[in-house]
Computed example of a mutant assay.
Amino acid sequence: MKNTICEKLMWSAMTPAIFKYIAAHCKNTDTSRVKKKSRKNFKDMLARTPDIGGFTKNPLRICLSGGIV
């Protein structure tokens, strides 16, 4: 899949809460390093995932993008 607006919106919507949780509950974790690694892993996973159609043709793209995040 490509990193389209749908994937960018899912990343922007979900990651602040995820990283706040990590910062609060995982005291020994370097959150900035986790952010960098997770962004790279997100892009790599998108590249490996087969395209399932555009946002208007397949509404399950939102679920798939959220699952990748």
Rank of each mutant, 00 (worst) to 15 (best):
N28L: 07
V34F: 11
R48Q: 12
I62S: 12
P50Q: 02
K36L: 06
G67A: 05
G53T: 03
R61Y: 03
K27W: 06
M10T: 05
T15W: 05
G67M: 08
F42R: 00
M45G: 04
C26R: 09
T15M: 06
K2I: 08
A13Y: 11
F42W: 10
I68D: 00
K27F: 03
R39C: 03
D30C: 07
W11F: 03
T56D: 10
N28M: 09
D51L: 01
K8L: 07
G66I: 09
K36M: 13
F55P: 06
D51G: 03
K8H: 07
D30M: 02
D44M: 03
S38E: 03
R61D: 09
T4C: 12
K35G: 05
G67Y: 08
P59V: 01
M45E: 05
S32H: 07
S12V: 08
N41I: 10
K40I: 14
R48S: 12
L9A: 13
R61K: 15
M10S: 04
M1W: 02
I18C: 14
V34R: 00
S12F: 14
D30E: 06
K43D: 03
L46M: 04
F42P: 00
G67C: 06
N58P: 10
V34Q: 01
K20R: 15
E7L: 15
I62L: 15
S12A: 14
P16T: 00
R33Q: 15
F42N: 02
E7G: 15
A23P: 07
I5P: 15
L64T: 04
K20Q: 15
S32R: 06
L60K: 12
A23Y: 04
A24N: 05
E7S: 15
P16F: 02
K27T: 04
N58H: 09
T4L: 05
K2L: 10
